[in-house]
Design a protein around this nucleic acid. Structure first.
Lengths: 234, 234
DNA sequence: CGGCAGACTCGTACAGTGTGCGAGACGCTT
DNA sequence: AAGCGTCTCGCACACTGTACGAGTCTGCCG
């Protein structure tokens, strides 16, 4: 009883549509622009209509509902992710390249972070990327279900890293919350774990976030790849 | 220019409040019930008010806005996660126990998946769990920043796994989308990757989702732990 | 006891949301 | 000219979060 149910755009034939003026592509492109500029909450059918010099409800000719539109824009940015061709079995490069590209895309379109886990990734771009990644893992030597397991593990790590990263950025944005008071709150909360407090002060100099985040991501990514490698040998 | 800015409940002193009737705890408890029953979209201030025999706007005495309420319920479920005490340096057990507990909690409260990455995890329960996990990694032998890296890597993996998992469950819920047509769509989309198609058919018998998901999670988790272990030795 | 201050409740109102409906307008084919 | 899809869109509805301000209740001080 979780509320409305959605089917998926990808599970039905698209409109015949030899449309003259507006098109689904144009709408999706405008929606991405609006999302980039104003975030997920900034996208409303009325605003999108206005941006296209159209009435809000005109869009419903091309898209069954807002959820479908979100599916479309979500797959759109999957199209920006790159999967390097694996060269002579060096699958680490492929996996690492994909992971970094994935992260960069989401950082560039922060609204996408909130779409993960809300919209099924069944579009051609999403499926295509996964397929190419899967192929790299197959070449690497994974077999059967383990290929899918490996793909999932990698994407899970990337999404799990980048989602809170985006959230943090947005909370900090425009000084609504300042780093100093976060630090204080954390210190207060872990007051009964003295060694953690100590570590915090130790690392205090390292708080130039972006660089730390980058390092953190690479650290975990290396761990994941090593872990997959280990699973491969056995 | 991402829209409204939020500060965080945890960054300001709570109300003095020697309240007689309603209390913040009671409200949070009711909110969790409502969320469990009706999902994230099913929670509105009016419904929550009704559930508590109160006017919708009465709640605003205890909570500055809905976002704060979400922060509170989010931390509430962090309280349900368990971090096993590490025994004689066997940190794998602690990490694995935490990971499984984390996953189970989110599967039990699917709405929480959409709160990750939308609400800062600065509550006492979230910070407490992280702190205990960090301690386990410190005992394991990680040093300085690497402790935090290890914690992040693990939680990233779990969240990244469970968020799409929940999304999938909800899309499939109540037959809005059936597994068969998803399969067909995927087959159509990867039509130009013949070997992937082949693998799909191979694994077709394994599609009793819950078990597969469980295996997948454990597979990736083992990889992550091994990868962290590798980082530790060097 | 009176009265006052703070804690708390809530009806009303406002701006905004997604979208169902049905009336209309365009352009192509017969 | 008639008709028929394709497409547009104004209106209306039910719903959202929450600002405001008038109201009630409770306990303390004189």
């Amino acid at each position: 009883m979780t509320g409305k149910q959605f089917s998926s755009v990808w599970l039905r034939e698209p409109r015949p549509a030899r449309s003259p003026g507006r098109s689904r592509e144009e709408i999706v492109r405008a929606a991405v622009e609006l999302l980039d500029a104003e975030g997920l909450d900034g996208l409303s059918m009325r605003k999108l209509g206005a941006k296209l010099d159209a009435g809000a409800t005109s869009l419903y000719w091309y898209v069954a509902n807002k959820h479908e539109l979100l599916e479309l824009v979500y797959d759109e940015i999957w199209g920006e992710m790159t999967v390097p061709e694996p060269r002579d079995g060096r699958w680490h490069e492929t996996a690492r390249g994909f992971a970094h590209s994935m992260r960069q895309v989401v950082l560039r379109h922060p609204w996408a972070a909130r779409l993960i886990g809300r919209v099924p990734a069944l579009g051609p771009n999403a499926l295509g990327s996964s397929a190419r990644l899967a192929r790299a893992f197959k070449i690497a030597g994974f077999r059967g279900l383990e290929i899918d397991y490996a793909v999932s593990t990698l994407t899970a790590y990337v999404f799990g890293t980048v989602i809170p990263e985006v959230a943090y950025n947005e909370t900090m944005a425009e000084g609504a919350v300042d780093e100093q008071s976060v630090r204080e709150t954390v210190e207060r909360a872990v007051a009964d774990h003295p060694e953690i407090l100590e570590r915090m002060r130790e690392n205090a100099s390292f708080t130039d976030t972006e660089q730390v985040r980058e390092m953190m991501f690479s650290f975990g990514l290396a761990a994941v790849l090593d872990g997959l490698e280990a699973r491969l040998v056995t």
